[in-house]
């Protein structure tokens, strides 16, 4: 690669890192939300699934416990962002210890339905605006609190670099191999199963360690979601 092209890439990378590592706060709203045909008063947040891996020079390693902790943090961050929009969050009804097998299965099945839809949601997020996506009224099988208007699905991925991997990524800066975190938040009508809002913020993986940065990222990612009018 010619030196000037490499230099151009380097500048781009620096800009990328400098500006909060390109926070992309893509937000897509269903026409019913935009046209205010549906107002969200309360939400139930389903258990988040944020998977992080530790990347070293020798490859990836699972971080199961850390993933669980971060999933809880992201759930809290989404909850507080919704509360700022005057959307009340129904208390967590999905503590594993409090659920029997049948309830666990129901939850797992709905999560699977969402996971099957997620790649299409990520690929064609703009189609949320065309009311293309739904999980079907099977979501009602969850029997969440009757006041809950929406279900919130949270998914995420993150890569944490070890010192060795960081060194390799700096040496091979033109490979554009960086630690990052992507989180997706899907807000689904609790009765019809329609996907009412979808956001996919992306940031440097530091947000996974820094709660403040995480909250800020989630808040920004839900910026377009209209606040519930106070009666």
């Amino acid at each position: 690669m010619k030196l000037c092209v490499r230099f151009g890439f380097f500048i781009l990378c620096c800009a990328f890192v400098h500006y909060g590592v390109a926070r992309v706060e893509a937000q897509y709203l269903h026409p019913k939300i935009v046209e205010k045909k549906v107002t969200i008063h309360s939400a139930t947040i389903l258990p988040a699934k944020v998977e992080i891996v530790k990347e070293s020079a020798k490859g990836s390693e699972m971080m199961v416990a850390e993933s669980a902790n971060i999933s809880s943090s992201v759930m809290e961050a989404v909850g507080s962002a919704l509360q700022q929009k005057k959307i009340s969050v129904v208390a967590n009804q999905f503590e594993p210890a409090s659920m029997d097998d049948s309830r666990k299965y129901q939850l797992a099945d709905i999560q699977t339905r969402y996971d099957a839809l997620l790649p299409k949601l990520v690929d064609k997020s703009k189609d949320v605006k065309k009311a293309r996506f739904t999980l079907g009224d099977e979501v009602m099988l969850l029997n969440v609190h009757k006041d809950a208007d929406v279900l919130v699905f949270i998914r995420g991925q993150g890569r944490m670099f070890t010192k060795g991997k960081t060194a390799f990524s700096i040496i091979n800066i033109f490979d554009l191999d960086f630690p990052f975190a992507t989180i997706t938040v899907g807000i689904v009508d609790a009765r019809s199963g329609e996907v009412l809002a979808f956001t996919k913020p992306m940031s440097a993986s530091k947000v996974l360690k820094d709660k403040k940065a995480l909250n800020k990222m989630i808040e920004k990612s839900l910026k377009k979601l209209p606040a519930t009018p106070i009666p």
């Binding site: 258990p47 390693e61 699972m62 971080m63 199961v64 416990a65 669980a68 594993p96 659920m99 097998d101 309830r103 666990k104 299965y105 939850l107 797992a108 999560q111």
Partner: peptide, 21 residues
């Protein structure tokens, strides 16, 4: 290290309702 991660993963399968009992 791998074993301890695997044990956690195993517990997670139970918690998430993916194991049929």
């Amino acid at each position: 290290d791998l074993l301890s991660e695997i044990k956690l993963l195993d517990e997670r399968f139970e918690k998430e309702g993916v194991v049929f009992h």
